[in-house]
Simulated scan of single mutants.
Amino acid sequence: MPGALLTPGQQGGPHRLAARRGAAVHGHRGLRSRTRSAVTAASGSPSSQSCSPRRRRRRRTVLAVHFRSRRGRRPLRRWCAMTEMTMRRAHIGDHGTIVECVRTWWGDSRTPEQARELSLLLPRLFLQFFSGTSLVLEDTGRIRAFLVGFYAADNDDEAYIHFVGVDPELRGRGVGRELYTAFLRRAAEAGRREVRAITSPGNTGSVAFHRAMGFTVEPGDREVDGLSVHSDYDGPGQHRVCFLRRIADSPSPQRA
């Protein structure tokens, strides 16, 4: 995991000050004048000479965070909402929460019945027997992302990623990448040489993600929209794209 992320409830410190001032610039007149004063001070005007070096540094910190938001890379308020998260091994006690997460997180793109059916891909046995190789990302006890994976029992070389879920509020921020990277590292440390995963042919986002993570598409028996797939992999009409990544000699993940 990278360094700690900004906690919205942090008391004091320049980050919270930055959040208040940055948000104020977008709608509160009273604090706009304060930000203008900070701009004047940071630009080297006479007023800045009367400030202590510590105060000038704090003002520059405020401006750096504010302008980072104004460039549009990420909304400041949303950026500040990211909390310090912890990655850990999954526990069997996480099962009920993870199932509920699947039904909630996929509720924006599926009907309640479809989301419920998707959650059936995670029966309790996965955390009963493979919790040691599965991962959970949480903050203040709340699960924000998870990865369910395991090592092959029939050989000592392969590992498999079965299911990954990320809170919609955190999607697009590299959370899935962190989970995959952690699983790949642990699998390599356990002596595994290959990691496999599958997805549906129509899930173009998943295909692009796995390719960016260094996975290759295994040749199948037919093509769907130019993509090699394995027919009836999960049952009649349930075609799947199969991915393979060799841990020892594969390139480092690329930015998607």
Rank of each mutant, 00 (worst) to 15 (best):
R89N: 04
S252V: 01
V148N: 06
L31D: 00
R55N: 15
F129V: 07
L31Y: 01
R59C: 11
R20N: 08
G141C: 06
R193T: 14
P2Q: 09
P253L: 04
T104N: 06
Q49R: 15
Q128F: 09
L227R: 04
L17P: 01
L121P: 12
W79V: 06
V136Y: 00
R68I: 13
T35Q: 10
R60L: 15
V102H: 03
F67G: 10
T204N: 07
L76I: 09
S48L: 09
Q254H: 04
N155S: 05
P201Y: 02
R246P: 01
A187C: 11
R57Q: 14
W106E: 03
G205W: 01
W106N: 08
G93P: 06
W105P: 00
V241T: 01
A248N: 12
G22P: 09
A115L: 12
G27A: 05
T35A: 10
W105K: 01
P123H: 06
N203L: 03
Q11V: 14
G22N: 15
C101H: 07
R103W: 04
M85R: 04
G191R: 08
P253A: 00
A18V: 02
L127Y: 00
D249Y: 11
Q114R: 13
P53Y: 10
Q10L: 03
G44R: 10
I92L: 09
I198G: 02
R142V: 12
R116F: 15
A18E: 01
P236L: 08
R110Q: 12
S119L: 01
R36C: 10
A90G: 00
A38S: 05
M85D: 01
V62S: 08
P123N: 12
R55F: 15
H66C: 05
V39M: 11
P53W: 11
V25S: 14
E189F: 07
G191C: 07
L121D: 15
P201N: 00
R68P: 11
F163R: 15
F209L: 08
H26P: 06
R255E: 13
D225G: 02
L118E: 10
Q49S: 14
Y233C: 04
R21E: 07
G172Y: 02
A159G: 11
C51H: 15
E218T: 10
S250F: 02
A153Q: 08
G44K: 04
A19E: 07
D94A: 01
R34V: 12
M87V: 10
W106I: 01
L5N: 04
S231K: 12
C101R: 12
V207W: 02
R57T: 11
H66N: 07
A208N: 03
R57W: 13
S45K: 10
L121I: 14
L6G: 05
L63M: 08
A19T: 07
L170G: 03
G235R: 13
D156L: 15
F209I: 02
V229C: 03
H66G: 05
D225E: 09
G165W: 03
H26Q: 08
A159H: 11
L76H: 08
P112D: 12
T61P: 06
P253D: 03
R16T: 14
L63Q: 05
A42F: 06
G30W: 00
L227H: 02
